[in-house]
Design a protein around this nucleic acid. Sequence first.
DNA 1: ATGGTTGAAAGTCAA
Length: 255
Amino acid sequence: MKIASWNVNSLKVRLPHLGQWLADAQPDIVALQETKLEDAKFPVDELAAAGYQAVYSGQKTYNGVAILAREPPADVVTDIPGLDDPQRRILAATIGPLRVVDLYVVNGKAVGDEKYAYKLEWMARVREFLAREHERHPNLVVLGDFNICPDDRDVYDPVAWGEDILCSPPEREALKAITELGLHDSFRLFESEPGHYSWWDYRQAAFRRNMGLRIDLILIGEALKPAAKAAGIDREPRRWERPSDHTPVTLELDI
DNA sequence: ATGGTTGAAAGTCAA
């Protein structure tokens, strides 16, 4: 089974890219972020024609998450219980043997900004939610755009980035508090070297110069670790015309 | 250094 996560930065613009990539990569489950679409405008029919059922939680202009799957998603959750948040950033569903949680983590803008405080608060609430999900579902997959570089290997220039947004110690601690629930960064089960990124800024020819960050992650519960066979980052769609600034990340599970 | 580029939407805001 192949699982993927992709921040498409507008599903309206990127629907052709997604269609091409689904045909090329043949994933079984895909978590999308930044769909930027109201639910009424979600391209259900186009994706069904490609062989995928979809669940989605979107809004106009900003945010928006979706899960595509070959098997029907069930037990869908679109909000963190007790957190009244209009921003559409989380989506959970059960697909076959897996519980899948798609996250579009708050960017935070800059350390000290009010959005940064919201990011840390949101991460703490997500951690509580994931702790409960993991108790109920050992086969838990948590994936998405985390907007946090786990460590300096995931940053093209760690000295320049320093402790700025996406790399600050409180953000990394918030991510660590989630991985310490027994949720492993699957990419690092297979690759320990630096220089592998999932996002490159649109500016300054960052992709061509490989000035990127690895902020798109697929975390798996301890119970799934033996099933993990390969993890990857598919840079090909980042080379296409009018690309998203993120590229798909993948995980092969023998399940 | 707060630059430049893209998306949504129509002047800016968010990333």
